[in-house]
């Protein structure tokens, strides 16, 4: 359920609680009304025209590192 895609925040309009996000060259205006904080350069999950949450780059990195470490334990 719930299609949401990560897109990079390119510009912000704080007064309108909106942002322009970029997804591989596609630019779309979305609402940032659900977020407390958001900065240019953040990646946010976009669902029905709203940013649901920011993506935590450190946590993403950790998850990816876990995939890489799997190699070490392969027989």
């Amino acid at each position: 359920m719930c299609l949401a895609v990560p897109a990079r925040v390119e510009s912000l309009d704080a007064a309108a609680s909106s942002a322009i996000v970029n997804l591989d060259g596609i630019r779309k205006a979305i609402s940032t009304q659900l977020l407390d904080e958001v900065a240019i350069g953040d990646y946010v999950l976009v669902h029905v025209g709203y940013a649901l949450e920011r993506i935590d780059p450190d946590e993403a990195e950790k998850t990816l590192l876990l995939f890489d470490e799997l190699k070490a334990i392969e027989p």
Binding site: A4, S31, H47, Y50
Partner: peptide, 11 residues
């Protein structure tokens, strides 16, 4: 929708 789609409706 579930809780994902609900907050935009609230807004």
């Amino acid at each position: 929708g579930f809780e994902t789609t609900t907050p935009p409706t609230a807004v």
